[in-house]
Amino acid sequence: MEVNLSIQNILDGHGVGISITGMVVVFAALALISTFIALLPAVLRIVNKIFPLGETPHALPRSSDSLENEVIAAIGLALHTEMGKHIPDK
């Protein structure tokens, strides 16, 4: 290959057209995915009413909410125990 710097190469290879098409298509695809993701919770609220979450054949992973509650409960207990040491008995 010979290095041949020329704007004509870009025009001959339809570089600008390919680039504009490419960027438009990739934006369109990801914008569609983004819109779908944004609408999904609302759609799922309706779906969940029609098909409520039932038992699954395999255990789903524990949600971070339940884990957070356990951590909060553990911190609460530790604080209660620790603070209790410093409060004089009635």
């Binding site: 600008v16 695809a29 993701i37």
Partner: peptide, 26 residues
């Protein structure tokens, strides 16, 4: 979901480089 668009914007590197490579004679 709006952060998905950043993944699209960064692809500009691909297409500008394509133009650069064409300019060099590839």
């Amino acid at each position: 979901p709006k952060l998905v668009l950043l993944g699209a914007a960064a692809q500009v590197g691909i297409f500008l480089t394509l133009i650069g490579a064409l300019y060099m004679g590839f």
